[in-house]
Amino acid sequence: MSDDRPTGERHVPVLRERCISLLEPAVLAAVAAGRTPVVVDATLGMGGHSESMLERFPQAHLVGIDRDLQAIALAGERLASFSGRTDLVHAVYDELPDVLEDLGIDSVDGVLFDLGVSSLQLDERDRGFAYSYDAPLDMRMDTSTGQTAADVVNSYPEAELLRIIRAWGEEKFAGRIASAIVSARRETPFTSTGHLVEVIRAVVPAGAARTGGHPAKRTFQALRIEVNEELTVLTRAVPAAIDALNVGGRVVAMSYHSLEDKIVKTAFTAGTRSSAPVGFPVELEEHKPYLKSLTRGTEAPTELEIEENPRAASAKLRAVERIKKESRNTNDRNAS
């Protein structure tokens, strides 16, 4: 079932004002230097953040990236009035270097990541991301390629299912769930979210569901991450975004669970600390930090923002600014 409402009514961007305000100094600095600012929305979705950036930054050029062809189409409609200032690209966000090279862009002034599953993917029932209604068990962010969640639950060995449900879903009942999936698929292969939810619900204690939310929540998260290789992609994407920045450029990242946030934090922390070896008598220029943190730990949405958009409740925002010209990779080699 599709949602036919206008895209602007379907999608409320998370922490919109804070994201824009964090990127603004980098954009204004580029304008002051006589350059056309380039900002990247690495997770374009339905284009809410991109629309706000294009409205706030009239001199800026925006590159929007998404692996979801439906998202590209909807965002294209939403951003049609800015078509002369946008490049919307079907790609995965770890392909950022290739996207920029293809567009003839050497460096950028801002990169925004709004991670995890998008509102579009949750709302389109036939995509299979939600456990609250029955749908084909798909979960691919790019429906044109790759294995589905049904492929995973029907073919992975029990030990591998256990691993991903425990690691990617942080599910303490992973053993029970993996065993139940393998047992159930011998009788009937999984094709729908409803079948999977029934199997999970039967083995997760009712008390755990009362305190920890829907019993299938963590397993669905694990399968979605596995199908889309989300954490592997993110591990490559954040350093690539940092490398693409001009000095003074900024990366803003919003994550929605601890696994995403840990990857973002690791990449940001590596750049905000000295890389001088322990006991080294003098900090050389190449050892100095190449990033400056713009947030103290993570920032969270306000109660009002959560009321307007309940999906923002778990958001954690981090941001950094590039303060040195040397590449991140050069600093990493010097530190090793």
Rank of each mutant, 00 (worst) to 15 (best):
Pro157Leu: 07
Pro157Gln: 13
Arg163Cys: 00
Leu122Gln: 08
Glu124Tyr: 04
Ile105Val: 15
Asp106Arg: 15
Ile181Met: 07
Lys172Asn: 12
Asp106Leu: 10
Leu115Thr: 08
Asp138Val: 04
Ser119Asp: 01
Ser192Glu: 10
Thr148Arg: 14
Phe173Lys: 10
Phe173Gln: 10
Asp87His: 14
Ser81Asn: 05
Ile177Gln: 03
Leu120Cys: 03
Gln121Pro: 07
Thr143Pro: 03
Tyr133Met: 14
Phe173Thr: 02
Glu170Cys: 11
Asp142Trp: 03
Leu122Tyr: 07
Ala159Phe: 00
Gly128Tyr: 06
Val89Met: 08
Pro136Gly: 13
Asp102Ser: 14
Ala149Tyr: 05
Trp168Phe: 14
Glu171Arg: 12
Glu170Arg: 12
Ser144Ile: 02
Asp134Ser: 13
Leu79Asn: 09
Leu162Lys: 06
Gln121Val: 06
Ala80Cys: 07
Glu95Ser: 12
Ala135Thr: 07
Asp126Ser: 13
Met139Ile: 01
Leu161Ile: 07
Gly175Pro: 06
Tyr133Gly: 10
Trp168His: 15
Ile164Arg: 06
Leu112Glu: 06
Leu100Ser: 05
Thr191Gln: 12
Asp106Cys: 08
Val92Ala: 13
Arg166Glu: 09
Val92Met: 09
Glu101Lys: 14
Ile165Gly: 01
Ala178Ile: 01
Ile72Cys: 07
Val111Met: 08
Pro136Leu: 09
Phe129Gln: 03
Val153Ala: 14
Leu112Gly: 09
Ser183Phe: 01
Ala167Leu: 14
Val152Asn: 02
Arg85His: 08
Ile181Ala: 00
Gly84Asn: 12
Asp109Trp: 02
Asp142Ile: 06
Leu161Trp: 11
Ala73His: 09
Glu160Tyr: 03
Glu170Tyr: 11
Ala167Tyr: 01
Thr188Ile: 05
Leu115Lys: 05
Ala159Leu: 09
Ala149Val: 04
Gly169Trp: 03
Met139Thr: 08
Asp138Asn: 13
Asp142Phe: 09
Tyr93Asp: 07
Asp102Leu: 08
Asp134Cys: 05
Ala178Asn: 06
Thr86Phe: 00
Ser179Cys: 07
Ile164Phe: 09
